[in-house]
Nucleic acid binder design. Structure first.
Lengths: 232, 232
DNA sequence: GTCTATACATAGATAGAC
DNA sequence: GTCTATCTATGTATAGAC
């Protein structure tokens, strides 16, 4: 598997890539026409939005704040999106595309339930670390999304969980994992993965690295899924 | 240990109790003078605030919304708090008092690391379930608090985690638990406890009860802390 | 104690100059 | 393409009648 540094580089590329996609798909909504300029400014706008929102909330961030943070006038901002709500939708959209694409690319290259489970955990942690502001934002601002986008977010969340549950079931069929409830187990694995990006400040202060965190989560999962559960 | 139903009753009493405390301590800020009336209306205001905020965010909840939700005019609302920010502070305050008081009452009655750990997990889950709206609110709106209150919230959070870590260390000293990192272990236990109130809708839809959830978390923790960790 | 009516600030959004 | 200036709606908060 690739190192975390390589991984970060890949994520960075993918993000620019998808900024372009967003642009081509929203040509009608975005008034500026030079692709390079749009991608550059969209990236700045997204970045500033995440920074400001994660500090005080998307709703509390005024477009004047954003204007200052992104280095563009309010008038200019409206050349890139039609409303504050649409800005939210675009960010949500971009993030989810990057994550699903990279998750799919990285997983599936390995075989065997134990290896699969470990890889899924590590890749998810790497990804959520490389895109921490987006993951945090996405979690905290979900309730501000319009109904339709909210449903999409939930579906995407459940799909990830299902992925873990499927790996666990496969391992149980092969008699590698013990008879734990696959849905509950994957729910709890997800809870642990989420803590990494929701409480990043805490782990950073304690100097816990992604790799160290990954190791603990993997150990924990294997201890629980071990074929001979320990009696109470 | 008491049943969940008894527990809920106790929490309900404690909440009214603490509403009174809040009132006596803020006599100067609250303009209404009849205790019964204040407690009744404060409870309605708090409840409506939690309901509205948890749906669309505290900042997005206007005082007009709250006025409608609580069944009081906007003028009347301002007889109970001086500003929206202070309302936030009062809610935060009340919740934390209830939780710390009940946690302390319930824990410490048992001896032995295994029993202590189990009790701490179960009580925390019961509490966060009985006061789910407050726990959710407290987590999601932390960043909207004034600096001082934010520090208090973090301290309280870390104290809970410390409590778990201490139990684990005790168990390790008595050679009952294996050599896992106590801080990381308690951080992950907390992550699992949080998932219960942050994703309540999910577990409700799957018909997972608090007791069932508690059992899984306890099993998981014991599997991980078992004296002979399973080799990878 | 609670209400209605209103003051004042700030939010999102747009028009038109450059 | 981007800016400044401005419109309108909505938000918090208060005054004063009842």
């Amino acid at each position: 598997m690739m190192t975390y540094e390589e991984f970060k580089g890949m994520v960075h590329l993918s993000r620019r890539e998808i900024c372009k996609e967003i642009f081509t798909e929203n040509r009608d909504l975005i008034k500026v026409k030079k692709p390079d300029r749009v991608v550059k400014n969209l990236a700045r706008i997204f970045e500033a939005t995440l920074a400001l929102s994660n500090k005080k909330g998307f709703h509390a961030m005024s477009l004047r704040d954003l204007s200052a943070g992104a280095g563009l006038s309010m008038g200019a901002l409206y050349s890139y999106f039609a409303s504050k709500e649409e800005l939210l939708r675009m960010i949500q959209d971009q993030g989810r595309r990057v994550t699903t694409r990279i998750l799919q690319e990285q997983i599936g290259t390995v075989a065997g339930p134990r290896e699969k489970l470990q890889t899924a955990i590590v890749v998810h942690l790497y990804l959520s670390d490389a895109m921490q502001p987006w993951f945090y934002f996405s979690y905290m601002e979900a309730k501000n999304l319009p109904k339709k986008a909210q449903r999409e977010a939930i579906l995407s969340e459940l799909a990830t969980e299902q992925m873990f549950a499927d790996i666990i079931r496969e391992g149980q069929n092969q008699n590698i994992f013990g008879p734990r409830d696959p849905d509950m187990t994957s729910a709890l694995i997800k809870a642990m993965l989420q803590d990494w990006y929701l409480k990043k400040w805490k782990y950073q202060a304690r100097q816990v690295t992604v790799d160290a965190y990954a190791r603990v989560v993997v150990d924990w999962a294997f201890a629980y899924l071990n074929r001979e559960p320990v009696a109470e």
